[in-house]
Design a protein around this nucleic acid. Sequence first.
DNA 1: TCCTGTATGTCAGAACTTTGACATAGCCCA
DNA 2: TGGGCTATGTCAAAGTTCTGACATACAGGA
Lengths: 150, 150
Amino acid sequence: MKESLPTAPAKDVTGHVGYLLKRAQAALRGAMDKALREHGLTVPQYATLELLALHPGMSNADLARATFVTRQSGNVVLRGLQEAGLITRPAIADHGRARPAHLTEEGHARLEAVQTAVYAIEQRMVEAIPPQRMAVLLTDLDRIAAALEE
Amino acid sequence: MKESLPTAPAKDVTGHVGYLLKRAQAALRGAMDKALREHGLTVPQYATLELLALHPGMSNADLARATFVTRQSGNVVLRGLQEAGLITRPAIADHGRARPAHLTEEGHARLEAVQTAVYAIEQRMVEAIPPQRMAVLLTDLDRIAAALEE
DNA sequence: TCCTGTATGTCAGAACTTTGACATAGCCCA
DNA sequence: TGGGCTATGTCAAAGTTCTGACATACAGGA
């Protein structure tokens, strides 16, 4: 019964969900790398700026979780942004060990400058998908992640 | 908060296609890393074995393209597999510079051993998606990749 | 109070990947 | 024949990320 017609299970690995997921993500990563390089930012750095604009005061651990890297890598990213003057972090935490990060004026400006390029990439993806399927696609991606994270 | 209309673009970056794509891929990568570690393989190594089983004789450049890494990284992967005795490559090429790789007996055996674990992960993804939507999902992922690769 | 558990930040080293560069091999066409 | 073009393999160095380890900070219960 698993030989149903709509979803013929591909014998070829390159037709599996995992492979196509990887391919799409690799293409996105490549496009973003190229676009961000012109602005002197890496993908994790950009993601961090975007998150901080939306949720000021996130800690390194928060950001690491949200960008899918380890705390150690997150720390490297934050130090880079700090040296570039795009974010600030208090030298000592007022509560616990978490040091809340905030965008500087320059950080906001840089983010705004790259958003044009990044959103253009997002737009290319959106236009590749029939509008009525987009919501479903987002749902399915979310389900895949949830199924694997548990 | 997620009561947005089908076409309403999410203001929150975490609702964008790119973010969900990254999240799903990160979850998959994590699950596979964990499963493969028990067998002493990395994800690129596993991908290479799978491709070689399907297409014996692929060159390093072929494999690098298919696994979305540079030729240099591909070379490292191949050397690792060769040292582990899972693949063989002729010392010199008979035509051009490409050195076709082939699985050894041990390579086939190792691949078979990990496939159980890896396919179980794939199964978790498949089960997370309503069957009638799977074909469309694969199509959409393919379209996204195509739109970004051009 | 103390102690266990959980969470965070950080250091150090290893592992992996990429960028940049160079040499070689085949193809095509003037 | 020869020159340009492309593809491949590889080395070296830099950049990035991870694993492992340790110290600190708070919450909660014995």
